[in-house]
Amino acid sequence: MSETYAGYVAVSAARPGGMVTLRADPGNGKVKTALTKLAGALPEQRKLIGAEIAGQPVEIAWMAPDEWLIFCPRDTAADLVAALDKALDGLHHLALDVSDTRLRFDLHGAAVREVLAKLTPADMAALPLAEMRRTRLGQVAAGIWLSAEDRAHVIAFRSVGDYVFTALCHAARPGSEVG
């Protein structure tokens, strides 16, 4: 896997970061209070927000009504799990370090929405910034979000990393602009 592909949108494999999955029911008032206290805020449905947990900068993505994926500096994932376990002590939850489960790819360029639309049935033109769209990318599951109009990010399972990177490069090949 080459590091960066200079297509009409640049495609690169992101440096590995930390990821923690959290399962808990925010319908339980105690869970919600504990998490809000810990992180300052929880993302609304489908949203991705920046926050700080235990002194570390994190991004929290809404994955399902009872599931979040928290991006953190790689070496702080274990501490983050511990902090979550502590905050939710006695409350039904599951926090796991899943930093190696998924790979992240970054897309940079004016046409990031268009390139992704070649591979996903999601309405890329309508995807708001900072919203996690879990969808199909080619033939695999992926999560897609935009941090800026010209910056998109893709997470996919580690085992299909080569497939995802190659598919993104194919879609970003110069001369294949849809316009």
Partner: peptide, 15 residues
């Protein structure tokens, strides 16, 4: 579409 050659289907590779 893109699903041919190496992209015909995703090949899962272990670490």
């Amino acid at each position: 579409g893109e699903a041919r050659g190496v992209l015909f289907q995703p090949l899962r590779k272990t670490a």
